[in-house]
């Protein structure tokens, strides 16, 4: 069985990612209008920016898709003129990489809500590493920093983990995922009967 990405996989991943790129762009204003509320409430919605990786992986279920989707979504957001500019591109690369590493750790064999949530946490960790270099976050008061980290991780599990899982589950009912997923063992068994 050839596990590499075919043109169909790449094109579908990128189209999904560009859709998310637009969502990412629209999410920006929401994020910075919530931010002045203080106490890092904004971090609860940060997880939206990790969603392309997990959703694309759940739909296509192949190695490399999570990384490609996150990078493509970030590029889409960058090209339409993100308020954060270049930042989104590099954050996208790191977030995608960390999500991909989590899926790799499970050898691309599990597609349940736990693994997806772990991938979301992975992306959150990636973004926190970037923020460490960019935002001097270690210089925040300790209670404030804990709030920041806690909210970001909770938010990413809820949005990029749980919500992404149920979104794809709903999408499966339309039958569209059968177009792009590789044939599973069950499909081959069904042919033998």
């Amino acid at each position: 069985m050839n596990r590499g990405l075919k043109l169909t996989d790449i094109l579908v991943t990128i189209v999904i990612a560009i859709g998310f790129g637009i969502v990412y762009k629209l999410w920006g204003p929401l994020y910075y209008f919530v931010k002045p509320l203080g106490l890092h409430i904004d971090q609860l919605i940060y997880g939206m920016w990790f969603m392309a990786a997990t959703v694309a992986y759940l739909i296509i279920r192949k190695p490399g898709v999570a990384f490609l989707a996150e990078v493509a979504a970030a590029s889409g957001e960058f090209l339409v003129g993100s308020e954060w500019g270049l930042e989104v591109l590099l954050f996208g690369v790191v977030q995608g990489l960390f999500a991909e590493l989590v899926f790799m750790a499970f050898r691309y064999k599990r597609f349940d809500v736990t693994v997806v949530s772990l991938a979301a946490i992975g992306s959150a960790v990636g973004s926190i590493i970037m923020d460490y270099y960019k935002g001097y976050i270690e210089d925040l008061a300790l209670w404030n920093l804990s709030l920041f980290l806690g909210f970001r991780i909770i938010g990413s599990i809820l949005i990029a983990g749980v919500a992404a899982y149920y979104l794809v589950k709903a999408l499966e009912k339309t039958g569209v995922t059968n177009l792009v997923r590789p044939a599973s063992k069950q499909d081959y068994d069904a042919l033998d009967q």
Partner: peptide, 28 residues
């Protein structure tokens, strides 16, 4: 959220799939 995202996503995937098939049919 559901009533917008599901049709938008599924249509995009179908369209992307068709484009890929068309590109390969034209020897890309």
């Amino acid at each position: 959220i559901k009533s917008y995202s599901i049709p938008l996503l599924s249509q995009s995937i179908r369209r992307a799939h068709r484009i890929a098939v068309a590109m390969e049919a034209k020897r890309f």
